[in-house]
């Protein structure tokens, strides 16, 4: 199922279809815009390290861009402070379709801060999030895996883990 966008391009409607489209379109090259919605900057340090020679993000076909209009993927960190929400929405709206949102770090996933007058306590209420990367902060290796999951080059493997040892058979 596709819907007609204002530009006349067919835009995928479901997230599964979006994932397939993203894998086809962005599997080899993708531009990332990072968005700090009130994080402590640890996540930004780890994201910055992705471009360092040891991790070398560019060999996988990912690039950072400062312009949301050039970006295919929005990497959001922080618990979405309310003062930043308008700017965050504008960033999301400025990105061309199809676009992918990756929530990065425990704050963005709703772990550290509760919703209060200053923060939403997570980014899930502001954007439709496609991939969630846990960690405080997520290491560059975890971020790399998350980005490759986002473009469909690796599988989501955490859904098969149960985080329990020596489980008695039922």
């Amino acid at each position: 199922m596709t819907s007609q966008s204002a530009t006349g391009l067919n835009v995928p409607a479901t997230s599964e279809e979006l994932r397939r489209t993203v894998a086809r379109m962005f599997g080899r090259s993708l531009h990332i815009r990072t968005l700090d919605t009130g994080s402590c900057a640890s996540c930004e340090q780890e994201i910055r390290l992705l471009a360092a020679p040891h991790y070398d993000l560019h060999r996988l076909g990912f690039f950072f861009t400062p312009a949301p209009r050039h970006a295919d993927l929005l990497m959001v960190t922080g618990p979405m402070v309310r003062a930043f929400e308008t700017a965050a929405r504008k960033t999301y709206d400025a990105m061309p379709d199809p676009k992918v949102v990756v929530a990065t770090g425990a704050c963005a996933l709703g772990g550290v801060y509760q919703p209060d007058p200053f923060t939403h306590g997570g980014v899930g209420g502001t954007f439709p999030v496609d991939v969630w990367i846990p960690g405080c902060p997520p290491s560059p290796l975890a971020l790399l895996q998350g980005l490759l999951v986002a473009v469909g080059r690796l599988a989501d493997q955490v859904k098969d883990l149960d985080f329990a040892l020596n489980r008695t058979p039922r």
Binding site: I133, P134, G135, P138, A142, G146, A150, V158, F163, A164
Partner: peptide, 17 residues
Amino acid sequence: EFELAATAREHLIKRIA
């Protein structure tokens, strides 16, 4: 385990009896 990226938030919620 550090490669924990999930495509749905529910995938990260584990129930341990």
